[in-house]
Amino acid sequence: MTDLLRRLLRTPQGAIGSALLVLLALLCLLGPELAPRDPEAIDFLGRFRPPGAQNWLGADQLGRDVLSRLMTGARSTIPLALLATLLGTLAGAVIGTLSAYLGGRWDEAIMRNVDAVMAIPGLLLALLLVSSLGKGSLNATLAIAIAFTPGMARVTRSVALNVRAQDYVKAALARGERASFIVLREMLPNVVGPVVVETTIRVAFAVMLFATLSFLGLGAQPPAPEWGLMVAEARRFVHQAPWIILAPALAIGVTAIAFNLLGDGLRDALNPRDER
């Protein structure tokens, strides 16, 4: 494990991605405590105050401190995106592994249906689900998890099939090992790596998707300092105060970049060709 971390930090993507993520993790844990001001405090005199000594990133249409809202908002975006991805990965991994393990007709039937569900664009599926589950952060999380499931099932299955074709799995089969041993000890440790890489990159998508749902008014609800929602609310005031919109937009971008970088770094670090 420490070995993997060392190899990860040796790749430039892994090092930058990890550094950014440590910062973001700190924001999620301590954001509200570190924020210079109360993110909800309304100050009509300070409306649209440009970035400066009083509000480092300026103030919004209600005079709220943009930096403080940004720092507090990390907590309402990143953990939920992570949760959505983990739920989607878990469900997808179970379906994908099951499909690869059952093989034959079952595999074909499951994968045909997974393909069919994937014909609905992820955002559309999430929109449909949120519209019937109702607006809100938790429902958006659930919708993203469901929207991710078929894709993760496909990835897990192809990795599992690849591993299943390896001679060490054949050797275990020929030895007469129990199915549980083959799946858990021979296959799983070799499936986890590529799936973790895919999952990490998908967190970036989840962050973007979650922000998009909030932007469209179906995720987090006002006055929550959620980044996508902040962009949506600030759109009307682009002329007066572009900083209200730029700050949360960049925060979303940086978070997505961090997870993308970490995913690429992990892929390199897990590559066995790199080992010697």
């Binding site: 970036a204 973007m208 998707l209 922000a211 998009t212 932007f215 996508g228 962009v231 949506a232 759109r235 682009v238 002329h239 572009p242 919109i245 730029l246 937009a249 979303i252 971008g253 940086v254 997505a256 970049i257 993308n260 970088l261």
Partner: peptide, 22 residues
């Protein structure tokens, strides 16, 4: 391209709007 794939459409759209239209 890293930045490109990491920005959701609504962010890209808003940025383009600010720069090119506004």
């Amino acid at each position: 391209s890293y930045i490109g794939v990491s920005l959701p459409e609504f962010v890209t759209a808003t940025l383009l709007l600010i720069v090119l239209a506004d």
